[in-house]
Design a protein around this nucleic acid. Structure first.
Lengths: 209, 209
DNA sequence: TAGATTGTTAATCGATTAACAATC
DNA sequence: TAGATTGTTAATCGATTAACAATC
C-alpha cells in the first residue's frame, strides 16, 4: 500500500469515488461494475479500474465491485477512520461558517477551538465553542494538541501563524488565506483558494461567448 | 488566442501567476525573469515560459517580463476586466459568508441577490442585501438576469435549482453543494467540494506517519 | 459451461522538462 | 558587443485509454 507511491491525481479522485459509492450504498445497491460507475461518473471504466488497482484488487472478475466493501476500503485509504482535532484560526465570516459546518464533524474532523485576534469576538460561541484570544493559542496547543489548523486570516497573518503552529507541532493546514504557506517538508497544506476558483469560472464563462 | 484550445491545467495555473504578479507589483518590482519567478513559485522556469507562450509572447529576450504588462494580460485572459452579476442561493452559514466576502466584489463579481427557502431568513440583510424568498427567484432573474449562481444549498435542492436557473439563462455555477450538477454542455460549473478537500488533507496526513 | 468483468499489459496521448537558437 | 533570457523545438516523463488474457 504505502510501498509504491500513489500519484496525487489518483488521490484527488478518491473522494469523488467515495461520494458516489456512499450514494449507491444509500440507495441499497450492493454491487457495481466499473462500466456502470463509469456511466454515472463520466470517467472511463479503464481509469476506474486503474485507480482502484493502485491499492490492490477490490473487485472480482465477472462480478464487479462490492459497494459496501469498496466504500469502506476507500474510507480507510483516505484516513477517514481516524479522528482529527481541528482548530479554526480567524473567526470572520468564513471561519465562523467553517466552524459551524457539521458535515466535517460527522466525518471525524472535530472542532476543538476557534481563535481570533479581535477581543470583541472573544467568548462569542460558535457551534457551542467560544472564540478564544490569540494569546492563549500556544498554551492551548501545548496542552491539548491539534492535528489540523484551518487558516482563515488575512495573508500576512496566515503565514506567520502557520509557522508558529508548525513549531508547536501542528502538521495539517487547511489554508483558506489567499497566499502560499511556506512550511517545512513534513507539513501538509491543502489550499482552498476561493478567489482563484472564481477566476477559473470567469475564464470558462469568457470562452463560452 | 481562442484558436488553439488551451489546456485546462494551464488555465488552472493562471490565477496563481496573477496573484504572484500582483504581489510583485505591490512591491514596486517592474521586471521579472522566468528564472526568478520560478524560484519564488516553486515551479520550473520552463513551465512558466511554456504557459505564457500559449497566449503569445509576453516577454522580451535578455530582459524578462514586464510585471505590470503581464499582470494586465493575464487579467484579461481570465476575464477579470468584466463585471459579473452574482446571486447566492442558500443563506446558511456558508452562503452568508460568501455573500459577505468583499474580496470578490473588488474583482468584479457583484452580489445582486441572496435567496433562501427559509421564510425566517427573509429580509435579513447581509452585506446590505436582503435575503429574498425562493418564490421570487424566477421573476428576479427574468427581470435582472444573473451571470453566476453561487450554490450553497443541500445536494438535492442544488441539482434542482441549478437546472431551473439554467432554464432562466444562467450559465455560470459556483457549486459548493456536495454533489455534481447535471447541466447542458454550455453551462460552466466550478466545483468547490470542501469535504473532498478535507479528505485529501486527511490522506496526506496519514502518509506522514 | 458461457458470459461478464476484472486485473494488467501495451499503446496512445498529453504535459513537463531540457536544450538551444534567436534576439533583445 | 557580450550577456541574459526568451520563444520554441525536441526529449522525457507520466497519465489515460485500449485491449485482452485471466478468472469468477
Amino acid at each position: 500500500m504505502d510501498s509504491k507511491e500513489i500519484s496525487p491525481v489518483v488521490i484527488a479522485r478518491l473522494p469523488r469515488y467515495y461520494r458516489y459509492l456512499g450514494e449507491l450504498k444509500e440507495n441499497g445497491i450492493e454491487r457495481i461494475s466499473s462500466k456502470e460507475l463509469s456511466g454515472r461518473m463520466k470517467v472511463t471504466a479503464s481509469q476506474i479500474r486503474q485507480d482502484f488497482n493502485n491499492f490492490g484488487g477490490f473487485g472480482q472478475q465477472g462480478y464487479g465491485y462490492n459497494v459496501d466493501y469498496l466504500y469502506e476500503e476507500i474510507g480507510k485509504i483516505l484516513g477517514l477512520t481516524k479522528k482529527y482535532r481541528m482548530i479554526v484560526i480567524g473567526a470572520g465570516n468564513l471561519g465562523q461558517a467553517l466552524a459551524g459546518h457539521s458535515a466535517f464533524e460527522r466525518r471525524g474532523f472535530l472542532l476543538t477551538a476557534i481563535f481570533d485576534i479581535d477581543p470583541k469576538l472573544e467568548g462569542k460561541k460558535i457551534h457551542g465553542i467560544p472564540v478564544t484570544g490569540m494569546g492563549e493559542l500556544p498554551g492551548f496547543i501545548k496542552k491539548q494538541g491539534a492535528d489540523i489548523a484551518v487558516i482563515t486570516t488575512p495573508s500576512e497573518a496566515a503565514r506567520e501563524i502557520a509557522s508558529e503552529l508548525y513549531q508547536y507541532g501542528v502538521r495539517g493546514f487547511w489554508n483558506f488565506a489567499h497566499t502560499d504557506l511556506h512550511l517545512p517538508e513534513d507539513a501538509v497544506v491543502e489550499n482552498v483558494h476561493l478567489t482563484e476558483s472564481l477566476m477559473r469560472l470567469s475564464y470558462a464563462l469568457k470562452t463560452l461567448e
